[in-house]
């Protein structure tokens, strides 16, 4: 794994230094007749069913955006390529031109804005606490003296560290290598709580053997805007993407997608995530903006 990531890093390094960014993604799409979407393989918002099939709320929204782009560019045929990305390689792949538009579960924050641009926020994530149904943990302060699980390579690890300091409490944190692993830590009792994005918690609980054994508690520890990511300094492409998002909000497409992916049973297990549209997300839809995470948590 380590070697794999390094290889990606070096490739990205080589690519960024040798290839000057074209800066005009619309022209690139038009001349090549194809667009490359960055998709996630196992996130609550975008995942794979195997065999090169990518689905999910944000994946389907991205496909709608592509259709609108095709209309706008007047192309009779637009070839869509799917490039699976991970938390580690998504930014280098957008920067070096491999991926044109990444709609997965990328948080818009100031740090990343130095390297990429974000479209308007289409999903607002809240970091919350999942515990066993019979647990006496109701809030962050109840975590004192407990063992808390979270997933390596997520902002939640840092968030926990900050909360520990701010609230003056002590707990042991253990890190799962992915969300399924972290949830297993909670399920097997190695951890008393699992702190993560609410959609991921809800998804893992709905897929567990006994969803009634778990509950999500407490005020959100943090609120994070999730948005599609695109190359920096490309206002024409940014406008086209944002126009499509606005269109999807106005004619109710996005709300239908929400219903489809978060309230109805979804493949592969045909269980429902059961996550109603939050006020924060609706707020972002009605007032299009690409404010970073920092603007939400002041």
């Amino acid at each position: 794994m380590k070697k794999h990531l390094l290889a990606i890093a070096i490739t990205a390094l080589a690519a960024t230094s040798t290839m000057a960014q074209t800066g005009d993604t619309l022209a690139k799409i038009k001349s090549s007749g194809s667009i490359t979407l960055g998709v996630r393989e196992s996130s609550g918002l975008a995942y794979t069913l195997g065999n090169g099939k990518y689905v999910g709320f944000h994946t389907e929204m991205a496909e709608n955006i592509v259709q609108d782009l095709q209309k706008e560019l007047g192309l009779s045929k637009l070839n869509v390529k799917y490039q699976p990305v991970t938390s580690q390689n998504r930014i280098p792949l957008v920067v070096n031109g491999t991926v044109d538009l990444e709609c997965g579960s990328t948080t818009n924050d100031l740090n990343r804005q130095k390297e990429v641009d974000f479209a308007n926020t289409t999903y607002v994530e809240q970091v919350r606490i999942a515990v066993k149904a019979d647990s006496d943990i109701n809030d962050v302060k109840d975590l004192d003296g407990k063992t808390v699980a979270t997933t390596t390579g997520t902002t939640s690890v840092q968030l926990l560290r900050q909360n520990k300091r701010a609230a003056g409490i002590k707990f042991k944190d253990i890190n799962g290598k992915d969300h399924a692993d972290s949830f297993l830590l909670l399920e097997t009792g190695r951890a008393d709580a699992f702190v993560m994005d609410a959609s991921i918690l809800a998804g893992n609980i709905s897929k567990s053997k006994n969803p009634k054994d778990f509950k999500i508690v407490g005020e959100p520890l943090s609120t994070e805007p999730i948005a599609c990511m695109l190359r920096k300094n490309d206002p024409a492409f940014m406008k086209a993407v944002n126009d499509s998002i606005a269109r999807q909000v106005q004619d109710g497409t996005l709300e239908k997608l929400w219903d489809k992916w978060f309230l109805q049973p979804i493949p592969p297990t045909n269980t429902s995530v059961g996550l109603p549209l939050s006020d924060a997300t609706r707020e972002a839809w009605n007032n299009p903006n690409n404010k970073p995470k920092e603007a939400y948590n002041e």
């Binding site: 380590k2 990531l5 580690q88 390596t152 390579g153």
Partner: peptide
């Protein structure tokens, strides 16, 4: 790193997420 020992690989995965400086860290 898979069982929560905070060794180099876990540091790399976590710190690159927090700082966005993956290449320097790796």
């Amino acid at each position: 790193f898979a069982v929560s020992v905070t060794e180099l690989t876990m540091f790399a995965m976590q710190a690159q997420e927090e700082t966005g400086r993956g290449i320097e860290i790796y």
